[in-house]
């Protein structure tokens, strides 16, 4: 249900922006009706990878007759999971979403090239993560929906790129204040589409 195809593949048709990596964790997907929790995702987390469309579907089991009007999920991995040792599946460190020099999951990875970048390779690298105070980067996203059985959650990279200044900051690779600000922008960059 998480659709990244329009962001990963088509946005980069403009010659001055190219995206090479877009990967992020979505966890604790919950469905609400009038503010009351009606269903939640049993999985610990899902790794959404723009280069692998099969990764973008999350199925939430619900009871018959359940209606909902809101989707909430966490963008990233919570602190409990971050201190629980090594985990498997989408959370296996071979997925490349775990820092090695310091413990902790990378919640969100975005890498590419853009003309605005001032470094010689015209490259940007955003590895957003961090679970410990004061640089906690997990963000709850909450989206109102019409309650269809299939919802497409879209990460609008345009919203994100409208707010970051690649000429000023093209690299974030550790837990920091910049990472926190970035994670807050991401939080606002999701929309829901119902087919």
């Amino acid at each position: 249900m998480f659709n990244v195809s329009d962001s990963g593949a088509t946005i980069n048709t403009t010659s001055d922006l190219k995206i090479n990596v877009l990967k992020y964790y979505v966890s604790h997907i919950r469905l609400y009706s009038n503010g009351t929790l009606v269903a939640q995702d049993p999985a610990l987390a899902h790794l959404i990878d723009a280069s692998d469309t099969s990764s973008s579907t999350c199925i939430i089991p619900v009871h018959k007759n359940v209606v909902y009007d809101e989707i909430r999920f966490d963008l990233g991995i919570d602190s409990t999971t971050n201190v629980s040792g090594v985990l498997g599946g989408d959370l296996d460190p071979t997925k490349g979403m775990y820092w090695t020099w310091q413990s902790g999951y990378i919640n969100f990875k975005l890498e590419g090239n853009a003309q605005q970048c001032t470094n010689s390779k015209k490259e940007f690298i955003f590895h957003i993560g961090g679970y410990a105070h004061p640089y906690g980067c997990i963000r709850e996203v909450s989206l109102k929906t019409g309650g269809a059985s299939k919802a497409i959650v879209v990460l609008e990279l345009k919203t994100l790129f409208d707010h970051i200044q690649l000429d000023k900051e093209a690299n974030i690779m550790s837990p920091s204040q910049s990472a926190v600000s970035f994670s807050k922008l991401l939080q606002k960059s999701f929309i829901v589409k119902e087919p």
Binding site: N82, V83, S84, G85, V86, P93, Y98, T100, W101, Q102, S103, G104
Partner: peptide
């Protein structure tokens, strides 16, 4: 104290 759990410790030397 960069590493918070012994299970993830070995990632550091392997990747360094």
């Amino acid at each position: 104290g960069a590493v918070n759990h012994i299970e993830v410790q070995a990632l550091a030397p392997i990747s360094n």
